[in-house]
Design a protein around this nucleic acid. Structure first.
Lengths: 197, 197
DNA sequence: ACACTTAGTATACGAACGTTTACTGAATGA
DNA sequence: TCATTCAGTAAACGTTCGTATACTAAGTGT
């Protein structure tokens, strides 16, 4: 029975969760090693059994974000498999994500242009993956589409910025935003289909 | 000769500039009152002659940003007055802004989803003003256009996210990004004009 | 069974933090 | 001219910070 590894992972989890919770109110950069340790229920010195620096902890958090974002992508693609309602599916998936993984998304967008170069490049890569897969879906759903990559990047930008907005809205306001997102994406889609239609 | 007010304003300026410079590397939240005071060439205690808190200083910085952004808007509108090259004008103005007011824009985007509720709402308001004026320009340049507001918001999102990207690129890479921005905006414009054309 | 590994504790350190207090000296204005 | 105003200084305070050291006690592998 390997209780040792299990408890270590438990503590690691608590550290990650604690830093997510703390950075939601004051921003990750302002979270101290000591407070995240105490919030996780361990001594400051014990922090070093898990991470060498706070930035290393931040990377662990971003790994969580990446994991959940990949899951989101996969679910979204399943959701509109053949249904050709790619726009609604993307928006709804993303809004669900906003509500179910609020802290993760908040961390993601708040560190998008934050202090750490490491964080920024990590997030940039993740965003580009998002754009790329979106472009592939556009191409398969609308074969012969020109500008799929451009359209995907534009759509991705809209989803990203409005998704961040949604973080701070109640359910009713989110519904309004949902409509705006769908309209925006449809506009882009229409433009990308262009005179090919 | 009111030397008193002048020197006070000089110090105030140095405080603002110092906080801009420091927050560029470590993020505003991580900048301490003491270091910004020392960087501005005054004693920590003298800081309180100008601002009650660091957040108040942050608001002063955001006022600077707002001012320069308004100027950007005005210049952009003049630039395409009647020329109907609204897309190129917007992109070029924005990219010039990126290079000439790098620190200001960095502060703007890094606090977009940052720690302070006050900062966030300030930035949100500024963005919405940007979207609104963009929508007005779209309507006057393309009379009878449906969805001008939606298109403006989509275009604004693209400019915002890609403009933030541009912060970290060299001149050559910026030129490539410029093309992508223009293509994206054209796509949206095309979609907004829709079958009205 | 027993030596070894290791997650976590207790404690202490010097440094940096925000803030307060009493002050100084030059600009101000009647 | 002379009392007043006030931007900035100097020093000190109690906290909190990151980090190092020596330790403990429980899980592990042979």
């Amino acid at each position: 029975m390997s209780t040792r590894k299990q408890t270590k992972e438990h503590t690691r989890r608590r550290l990650i969760d604690a830093s997510l919770g703390l950075s939601a109110t004051k921003g990750f950069t302002a979270v101290s090693l000591r407070e995240v340790a105490v919030a996780a229920g361990i001594t400051p010195a014990a922090f070093y059994r898990h991470f060498r620096t706070m930035e290393e902890l931040g990377i662990a958090v971003l790994d969580e974000v990446a994991l959940s974002l990949r899951r989101l992508l996969r679910e979204t693609r399943q959701r509109f498999k053949g249904k050709e309602k790619i726009v609604e599916a993307t928006v709804d998936s993303y809004l669900e994500y906003v509500n179910e993984h609020r802290l993760l998304l908040h961390f993601f967008v708040s560190e998008w242009q934050g202090s750490s170069e490491l964080f920024r490049s990590f997030i940039k890569d993740e965003l580009e993956l998002f754009y790329k897969e979106l472009a592939e879906d556009l191409e398969t759903n609308h074969p012969g589409m020109k500008n799929a990559a451009v359209a995907a990047k534009a759509m991705g930008s809209v989803v990203f910025t409005m998704g961040a907005e949604a973080l701070w809205l109640g359910k009713k306001e989110q519904a309004i935003l949902r409509t705006k997102m769908i309209q925006s994406l449809r506009l882009i889609l229409l433009g990308a289909l262009g005179n090919a239609r």
